[in-house]
Design a protein around this nucleic acid. Sequence first.
DNA 1: TTGAAAGCGCTAACAG
DNA 2: CTGTTAGCGCTTTCAA
Lengths: 357, 357
Amino acid sequence: MVTLADVARHAGVSASTVSYVLSGKRSISAPTRERIQHSIDTLGYRPHAGARALASSRTDILALMMPLRTGLYVPVMMEIAMAVTTTARSHGYDVLLLTGEEGPEAVRRVEGSAIADAMIVMDVGLDDPRLPWLREAERPAVLIGLPTETVDAGTDGLDCVDLDFEAAGARCVEHLAELGHTRVAVLGEPPAVYERGTGFAARTLTGLRAAADRHGVGLLHRPVDGTYAAVAAAVTRVFEERPGTTALVVQNEAAVEPLLALLRHQGRAVPEDVSVVAICPDQVAVHASVPLTAVSVPAQEMGRLAVERLVGRLAGEEPRGTELIAPRLTPRASTGPVAAPASPDVPTEDRRGHGGR
Amino acid sequence: MVTLADVARHAGVSASTVSYVLSGKRSISAPTRERIQHSIDTLGYRPHAGARALASSRTDILALMMPLRTGLYVPVMMEIAMAVTTTARSHGYDVLLLTGEEGPEAVRRVEGSAIADAMIVMDVGLDDPRLPWLREAERPAVLIGLPTETVDAGTDGLDCVDLDFEAAGARCVEHLAELGHTRVAVLGEPPAVYERGTGFAARTLTGLRAAADRHGVGLLHRPVDGTYAAVAAAVTRVFEERPGTTALVVQNEAAVEPLLALLRHQGRAVPEDVSVVAICPDQVAVHASVPLTAVSVPAQEMGRLAVERLVGRLAGEEPRGTELIAPRLTPRASTGPVAAPASPDVPTEDRRGHGGR
DNA sequence: TTGAAAGCGCTAACAG
DNA sequence: CTGTTAGCGCTTTCAA
């Protein structure tokens, strides 16, 4: 193994000089720097991570705690993880993957054994047992996703990054209201998600309801599991309870395709008979069997922001509290103006959907 | 921060004794061990990861290199990652997440800076530039997925874990042949996957073709992108080219729901008019709008096996070469006996699907 | 069964 | 601008 001492000897300088070339914390004359750099290259030297960590108390590693429960918003999780990893790399950090399953113990482990410099925690619930440990921790942490149902509560001292789900919900209703829809049903996440107090689901609902009130829109909310059967049951019931429903908002990745399949099966054309707005990653919206008008969940941006925060904190910046990402709704083929209710005989050919762009 | 020296002082012993209590590499008298353990607990001591790594040249970290290309078999990747992480933890290891995007450089980085003890590499292609570095590396590595199209070629010296895709393909055809199908079409991964030489796609095809020959089954193969449009085009063409097609094999997670939606749309009942067999994770098969007869891609098992191999290697075991997991086909609602071809007037009611268990 | 002591490879004062 | 030196916290011979 090539050590710093080897490089120093090869370049005819002292170890510290080599160290300073690497860290750039001291100005080195051009010739020496070049000579050292040359030695580094020819010898193929790489600093020993453990030694560096011991001497400097920095590991250049960020811990990322992901929920284990596979099958729940998988693509979003994956995108976030990848965004975190690539952003981290671009700042010189590596990423240690931890599962949420380990709970508070993982937080203490990271803290106690100095295995990472900071941590990113996903899927934090209300009264999450990790929160107290994170607050007390020496190392900075940032949460992806708000643990609370209302902004500015319970996150004292912790940095958070999340989509502004309240605004996202509102944006969906506004878009539909603009198109003339007045009867809207919401297909939400599975009941378990609401019960767990994951926050984002509740906040979305708040936004949806507020906007519905403002625009005189009637709103029906149904949590659904992401199976065809569950979606079918919920949608059927919605149309029975309120036959005048002309638009749906879906916040449930797994329910998207089942929903579209069902509507097709029932002979309801999208968007001629019913408009659909989704809150989901762009990828899901674009690749759906009907390209969906959607407020995108900016997974990449969330991952990137979280890392940048942490890098900032590690460079001495102060915590900045909660940062919500403004929602962006992209009109696609799944929404259109509400059909004229008075004349059900009008041929559908002339009402091809347009996104309203 | 609590150090080993603190514990030693608190317990009234030497540092080395504490160290040996922790590692168990020396027999310690019960009383001293208990006293030390008590000190450890009360002080809340955790060994410093960097210091330990420096002194012992072991980090207790496994590197996991995942493909970045998000959107490609995402759920499988995610499941593998989680299985790797939990299995690793159960053996006392943490997991460092690397993206495939970093390429060979990441391999050299892990090797050079001793940041991990071993690595797991996913999505290895033919002529993957990482292979030479992995072969030369000091640290053990195991590949998830065979980089070659044929077993026992080009993996010299490297451990591999993968599903036996050849047998999986064969199993699909056998199942359909048993049900009387003689005209089968295969919807495969996107063309890019075959071109990239990812191996598993080619091996599946080999198995499908061999079994088709054996059983006198006519096979049509179509790579498809995972969009509704692409699937619709491919399927429509298949039925035009060979109207007698009564069964489909799908190896493309993204194509599953579009396919089912399309068949429903075209009025082809599953499995009465057409049987569908998938090669995909169980989760996808179970939650599809029609529960799918499928050969499952055992993501969890692959992740677990990979880690166990690595742990074994780190404990001194010899490389074991390639290990293929035998495929398991689970009959569900999507396959049934072929409809009597001579009497197209027979009502479909009496031909309800059964999986043939 | 335990202790003493010499590093592991690097960083960061402190000194020139 | 560069060198000397004292650790960082732990593991592991070597001695007792």
